[in-house]
Design a protein around this nucleic acid. Structure first.
Lengths: 227, 227
DNA sequence: GATCCGCAGATTGGATCCAATCTGCTTTGG
DNA sequence: CCAAAGCAGATTGGATCCAATCTGCGGATC
């Protein structure tokens, strides 16, 4: 059985997934170097499959490989982030539009649930001692909301394109912009609720434009924070 | 110097590019297997860098690797193609909308040139002996048109997302739908010209909806052809 | 005291080697 | 004559080995 970090003997796919997790969670910091030998030992394999995994991550835009120096987690520029969020808004907007026609009753239930949770987060975030809990809850809820809309759109290529974009962006970027300002958080909750309402009403065009606006507002907050 | 197929000693990046070319041009057929040893010899390297290149292509969705059997060029399903074309329409539609605000005079010149060439192709395609020439010219012109619009949009993430999508689709797919029907080809030329006009007039919303319609028509033709 | 040079250690890139697995053909049994 | 078993060749997956290169540090030089 597993004596090392995770499972004994791992496939390339496993290594890719594990590294994505560790990068996404911040365990491996943005701009940080990834040592092949270290990853190899953690997974109980030689460097060969690790190198292949790193090449996949390179193709996905998650890391960049520098000759004879190694792989480091891609550090997106402010421009990259702004552009990626714009594209994300476009794709999610389209997903929302499709969802308005195709969403199932069960998926609408899920959205109703996230709406309620977003409201709870607004309240929770007022407590200075619950910031970490609020962040975690908001992040999970936000992920669920967007994943549900995209799933309801029922277009796998759309899902794939959005996944690719997300992997190129640091996680919790939006929360960094929301944190500390109750008004922004409140508006964020309103955005989600309005999108749900438009989808439920079958108003695709409105769902699309609300989603695009929502993404652009998120982008603004993030860029202001970084400026 | 190079005694072998292309350049002597190639980097992983070179191998990726070369394989993409050979897949895109149809030299390696869809569904065909890629032999590591063969590619290695053609590039004057061992199988190690070839495997890394194949892993990148796998991450890009260009090939799929089957354990102990090898890499084969991805065979997209009809559904995959339909969905990818839908997403492409959305992204290019957005690009057209942005282009309407940002396009330069020089880029508009290029579009004027492609418009003229599209008209020439319509005429050329009436000659049964010039089919191959027409196909080639249409393909080059179409690529230039879309590349120019995306470039004018000035969003690198949008470009990257579209490139990723294109690599997942067989080349010359649209021509396969257009070929042999002068009415469709004529309409295709009209589409491009109308989009150019909307961009030139700065009417972003119209450019967007025309582009989306254009993509959907292309999708329809392709799917009818495959059905 | 600052700068340049060069060497030791660390790390990667790629070649080669071997075990595991798959394919297709041949053989064997019904 | 057909189906199942088995064997040989081909091919991949991964481990290991070695050369090339980069980094950081210490000493020589001005």
């Amino acid at each position: 059985m597993a004596a090392r970090g995770s499972a004994d003997v791992a496939s390339v796919r496993d290594i890719v997934d594990r590294l994505q997790e560790r990068i996404g969670s911040g365990e491996i910091p943005i701009g940080g170097w990834i040592r092949q030998e270290q990853v190899a030992q953690q997974h109980g394999v030689s460097r060969t499959p690790v190198r292949e995994a790193l090449r996949q991550l390179e193709a996905l835009g998650v890391v960049e490989m520098v000759a004879h120096r190694g792989a480091r987690v891609t550090l997106p520029s402010t421009r990259d982030i702004a552009e990626a969020l714009e594209v994300r808004g476009v794709l999610e907007g389209h997903a929302a539009q499709l969802a308005a026609d195709r969403i199932t009753e069960a998926q609408l239930e899920v959205l109703a649930g996230t709406d309620a949770t977003f409201r709870r987060v607004v309240v929770l975030a007022r407590d200075p001692d619950a910031q970490e809990e609020a962040r975690e809850l908001w992040y999970r809820t936000n992920s669920l909301f967007h994943a549900t809309v995209v799933e309801a759109a029922g277009n796998r290529q759309l899902t794939a394109s959005l996944d690719a974009l997300h992997h190129r962006l640091p996680r919790n970027l939006t929360w960094a912009g929301l944190a500390g300002d109750p008004r922004l958080l409140d508006r964020n909750a309103d955005d989600h609720i309005a999108i749900t309402a438009a989808i439920r009403a079958g108003e695709g065009e409105r769902a699309r434009s609300l989603t695009l606006q929502h993404a652009r507002r998120a982008a603004e907050m993030i860029l202001v924070r970084r400026a």
